[in-house]
Nucleic acid binder design. Sequence first.
DNA 1: TGTGCCATTATGTCTAGACATAATCAACCA
DNA 2: TGGTTGATTATGTCTAGACATAATGGCACA
Lengths: 236, 236
Amino acid sequence: MDQALPLYLGIQRELEARIRSGEWRPGHRVPGEHELLGHYGCSRMTVNRALSNLAAAGLIVRRRRSGSFVAPPRAEETVLAINDLKAEVEARGQAYRPDIRMRRERPATATDALRLGVAPGTPILALTLLHLADGEPHALEERLINLRVVPAAREVSFRDLPPGSWLLQHVPWTEAEHSIRAVRADARIAGLLRRRPGLACLVIDRRTLRAGAAIACARLTYPGDRHSFSSRLGPP
Amino acid sequence: MDQALPLYLGIQRELEARIRSGEWRPGHRVPGEHELLGHYGCSRMTVNRALSNLAAAGLIVRRRRSGSFVAPPRAEETVLAINDLKAEVEARGQAYRPDIRMRRERPATATDALRLGVAPGTPILALTLLHLADGEPHALEERLINLRVVPAAREVSFRDLPPGSWLLQHVPWTEAEHSIRAVRADARIAGLLRRRPGLACLVIDRRTLRAGAAIACARLTYPGDRHSFSSRLGPP
DNA sequence: TGTGCCATTATGTCTAGACATAATCAACCA
DNA sequence: TGGTTGATTATGTCTAGACATAATGGCACA
């Protein structure tokens, strides 16, 4: 009963099941290509593809002359999908509106330079804006854009499309750095978010680069009483 | 000057560069297999591999009869590598010691059942422990283990190997759920972490499952003044 | 007793074909 | 005009070979 499942995928899943179930523990020797092609009666390219995919997924380690072995368990990883904020709010069924509180074009100060990772004096665009969901502050964004890399940002109002979404659509990035931490809202942050000072907030710092050059950075501050990030990992 | 770079990888990188640089925008038609094999003078399997890899990486979308196209930009994703805490502390060059503050075997209460996702009454092991780095509280862990799935946990002291590391090594998981948020430390949490109440803390809830059955869940509370999670995404 | 070299082995890459499948377009017939 | 059919096209999978490469172990030679 061939249910149109490609042969290489069938082999791949069968091996994967044995590893995930714990039947084959880390370090266990996986049958080699010759054993598998004998078992399944297919060509070497086909079992090679199955094994290569498992190796690419980090489930096995392949070594010449020795064979393939179940890889040690990988460190647990959380994948946080951070959509742009417009999509994030609209996904919750709320009306989105950005509220630009500050917009300034200037040479990078020492602080800017440190945050963005450019030389002081580099022309930048600094923005502070509130992301409103049904009129209520959803998050505060403090953004710096490197105008040397993205001069076109000078001409954009960001009144409809927030800078995160705009950049995502106009400037491809190759690397991104993130850091997530918890802080207490100081008076300024609390005022902007219309909360009491001292509220615990989730702060995400993101810096995107292309070919080593900093494109932009953003600090997103979410009121902790309103927000959490969730994710689910594993085979769908 | 062939620097031993496999042909398929060379093609793959060349195409990838054009996409990442923005030269080919989303929706742009990527040269098909026949065009590429004419250009590179290699067989179809080789260019197919390059294109398949790009499709697997989400950079292009392949459609029969139509061709291959640059994929729309993916939503930004943050990958948080959450190592087990012992490794996390030792990576910082500090001495790690777990301090078990509570350990109780009991049928799941209504609260437990909700957190872990099992039926009330299911036998569980509840643990509260402090992860100490050089004697200072690094994080608080409140863990529930489903003894129906992992009965062996009954016999483990967790005094050397904390439960997170033990489970990682002994029970393979297939799915994991995470949620990250910021909260203010209440009196109990603050006392355990030896901080002032009201401190902003990062709270990570993690639930691991195998084949739909809950294995364990953990709530990790990090004092916000000591900790942040970082990650870097992109080609190595 | 080393030490360098060679044969063995398993994986890594690649070729030149093959048939299958899905989507699309155009021609055809009602 | 509208729906059906068939040809075309690009991708998807697969085969049976090939040579390359890295690691290992043993053998021979000094």
